[in-house]
Design a protein around this nucleic acid. Structure first.
Lengths: 237, 237
DNA sequence: CCAATAGTGTCTATCAGACATTATCTA
DNA sequence: TAGATAATGTCTGATAGACACTATTGG
């Protein structure tokens, strides 16, 4: 039998295969806290519980796994987040009561304002403080997945400015520093923080300033390279 | 309908699902080169081509995805590698001619001696220099997967001593340094290399030495913590 | 003026890079 | 002794930490 014959007669359903779904851990920064997007499950299993936005791959609709996670996030937020990165994949016989299941997990970041209107208008999706989420009884293994996403993002806060994607397009350095501080879990030296960002030329200084009770802070915007830049030395250790 | 009713009547095959397989990128270090384990495909599709060890998840046999990759690697090498880490997951409609497919990829490291006998005894598995593999026409998207695994391992060589898992239990510092040099693609200062490993107390110095034409080199063994330790500053930048 | 927040100056500590020097083996 | 490889000494440079200082706003 040659390959074309083999393919013509191949039946993908002949062998039992795991269920394949995708989950998105979408973070934002709002009111000095890191928040994660949770949705209330409207179907079995774990109906009524809160969990991560996600669902099965639709092999008709989606061309890639990224398509799936973007589709799921857009359903809840109305937009595509500016930062989406694969976290890891978990697959085992027990995580889903329906049977052997695999979930490909993504970490995503977005500005709060970018989708606040969409989320406030629906009752089945909510921003939840990560500290609160950590104490909730979430669906499946979603609590562990959120923990792992936070841990990874914490690492990134030490050697990149990826967390800037959790802020609006224009932001101040003290704001960005505070996002990093919340992620890392300790306060940072503002001098060190500014110095490395300036030296790597990661941000574009804007003419505008923003006042917050004291001296107005300069607004910045990320340069194109900023999302992929990694420092050779960690901050906050 | 309550959850138990739902689960009792749930049919996992009712919805078309991607094929789920696992691929392992097993590296070793031998004769001053980084090698990757390739196997010759004995079945369609891409029959006859070389590719990564891997295959479908067996939902009867495997409890987790790690079980699957370990099973596949053991089939080819006879042993379980001391280092296995998930790399990423690729899933799309086109990578496998049989249809929408997802592959969960793992990077693994092992000492050459650990499985040389097993691999030499079979003709369908072979260690291939990564530079050679990069020029081969491999099955599926396996060439890209190997590239990504190398890139990730290269990063790890800069801030950890994970590459030590590609060596036997006992090894010398110049040996380890050379593995890092091959991965990073440039020579390193031996003083810098030794200094950071000594300071972090990652290795246990053994009484034995090994001679290689000049002054004998001290043998070392990894401490338990050494595999997870990360330096706060990169080497070789 | 004071309080608050933004931003700078400058010293120190740590650690990688560079490279000369010493140590220990074999032929 | 010469050649080879292992290991150390020591200086320099880059960059994070610490913290005092100045700058710019509102009240």
């Amino acid at each position: 039998m040659d390959e074309s014959e083999y393919l013509a007669t191949y039946d993908a359903r002949a062998f039992a295969c795991p269920l394949v779904c995708v989950d998105g851990v979408l973070f934002t920064y709002h009111e000095h806290c890191l928040k994660v997007l949770l949705v209330r499950r409207s179907a079995h299993p774990d109906m009524g519980r809160w969990g991560l936005p996600g669902g099965f791959v639709d092999i008709q609709e989606d061309r890639t796994l990224e398509d799936t996670v973007l589709r799921k996030l857009r359903e809840k937020t109305g937009v595509a987040p500016p930062y989406v990165e694969q976290l890891f994949t978990r697959g085992n016989a027990v995580r889903d009561k329906r049977g052997w299941s695999v979930t490909v997990c993504y970490t995503a970041l977005i500005a709060y304002q970018e989708c606040a209107a969409n989320i406030e208008s629906v009752s089945d999706a909510r921003w939840v403080d990560v500290l609160v989420a950590d104490g909730m009884n979430l669906a499946f293994d979603h609590r562990e997945i959120i923990s792992a996403a936070r841990a990874r993002l914490r690492q990134k806060a030490q050697y990149s400015i990826v967390p800037a994607y959790a802020l609006p397009e224009k932001f101040t350095l003290p704001e960005l520093q505070h996002v990093h501080e919340v992620l890392i879990g300790k306060s940072l030296q503002k001098k060190s923080f500014r110095r490395r960002i300036e030296q790597a030329e990661l941000l574009e200084e804007l003419a505008e300033k923003r006042s917050e009770g004291g001296r107005p802070a300069t607004l910045y915007r990320m340069r194109d390279v900023a999302g992929t830049y990694t420092f050779i030395r960690n901050i906050g250790e």
